[in-house]
Amino acid sequence: MEHLIWNIDPVLVSFGAIKIHWYGVLFASAILSGLQVMKWIYKTENIEQESLDTLLGYVVFGIIIGARLGHCFFYDPSYYFANPMKILAIWEGGLASHGGGLGVILAIGLYVKKHKVSYLWILDRLAIATALFGVFVRCANFINSEILGVTSNLPWAVVFARIDNLPRHPAQLYEAISYLFIFIILLGLYKKFKSHSPKGLLLGTFLILTFTARFLVESVKQKQAAYSSEFMLNTGQMLSIPFFIAGIILVILAYKQLNAPSINTNKK
């Protein structure tokens, strides 16, 4: 059976010793696309956009620091406890989306404490931008031939020639497509409610859909954790469960707001 042979150079362009990688370009595109979504939301709700640059800084640092620490402590803790300076070697690769999610949640907590705005109001709207962010990042993983799927003979299996000659599930693309659909769903929900969206609805929907997709895709991914586990579920699946439960709780509370006799959901 013929399969797609994927062997693209991870370096997009080089100028002498300076190299620009596809991953870096797509990661920057992910940030910029998320920023444009937030600008559109702020414009839609007639909110001044000056604070977005500060918010962007909190989000980017939260993602990078959280994703790095998540990779180190969720997937290979023994190595990084033995080599703590390697935690800083982010250029060697290793970012975990679960850690990135926690990093953003904590970073936004610091932001709202300083700027006196609603925590859930911001997280609801950031959920839309984050879904689009995930599309770009998983495409970057695909180009880099990382976060590989298990072997498969399905017609759409991909041979990552830089790794080996085995056809594999394109797990990165499964996630990217899932996040694109999640982005469309969240955007539809936002357009329906706009500023009157009950707090927690968008974030809860994001958590439910994202970590359901993540849980399912993990079943066709290669093992990423460096340690063995006695559980039937892998590390990525176990980490997805608390986020999923949190999403269920948020959606239930949001629908209680909708059914309340009198509520001002526009209050921030």
Rank of each mutant, 00 (worst) to 15 (best):
V137T: 12
R138W: 06
A176K: 02
A30P: 04
F215V: 06
G200L: 01
S228E: 15
R214T: 10
L4A: 13
F61R: 00
P84F: 07
T265Q: 10
E230R: 11
A131S: 15
K39W: 01
S33H: 09
A157E: 01
A213F: 09
L250Q: 05
P10V: 12
I31K: 08
W91C: 05
K43D: 14
I263Q: 06
W40N: 15
G236P: 11
G62F: 00
V37R: 06
I31G: 01
K256Q: 14
L32C: 06
A89Y: 14
K39F: 04
D124H: 03
V60C: 12
A254F: 00
N144A: 06
L202A: 08
F133Q: 10
R162N: 12
I184G: 01
V158H: 07
L4E: 00
V25P: 11
L88G: 05
S197Y: 02
I208N: 00
K39D: 03
F160M: 02
S152T: 14
K199S: 08
R138A: 10
F181G: 10
N165R: 08
F193D: 08
A260N: 12
M1N: 11
K256S: 10
P198A: 02
V11T: 15
R214I: 09
D53H: 11
K86D: 14
A28C: 12
F193R: 03
L258Q: 12
V137A: 03
F183T: 01
I248Y: 09
W121Q: 05
Y119R: 10
K194R: 14
I90Q: 03
V217S: 09
R168T: 02
P10Y: 10
L106N: 05
L132C: 04
N153C: 06
I147K: 00
T44I: 08
P167R: 03
I90P: 10
G134D: 09
K39L: 13
Y111G: 07
L95E: 06
Y174S: 11
R214V: 05
E230M: 13
F244M: 11
S195A: 15
A226T: 05
R125Y: 04
A30K: 05
A225M: 04
E146T: 09
P198E: 00
H196T: 09
F231M: 11
S29Q: 03
I128L: 07
I143P: 02
N266S: 15
F74A: 14
I245M: 07
Y227E: 00
F74C: 13
I177C: 10
R162S: 08
W91M: 06
D124C: 10
L186F: 05
I252S: 00
I147P: 06
A96N: 08
N264L: 12
Q224G: 08
P242Q: 01
I182S: 05
P77R: 09
A30H: 08
F142E: 06
V60D: 02
K39E: 12
L253W: 07
M232Q: 08
R68L: 09
N153V: 04
Y111N: 10
A225T: 02
M238Y: 01
E45T: 13
A246N: 03
F183V: 11
R214S: 11
L55I: 13
I90S: 06
G188P: 00
T205D: 02
Y58V: 03
A17W: 13
L180S: 11
L126F: 14
P242H: 09
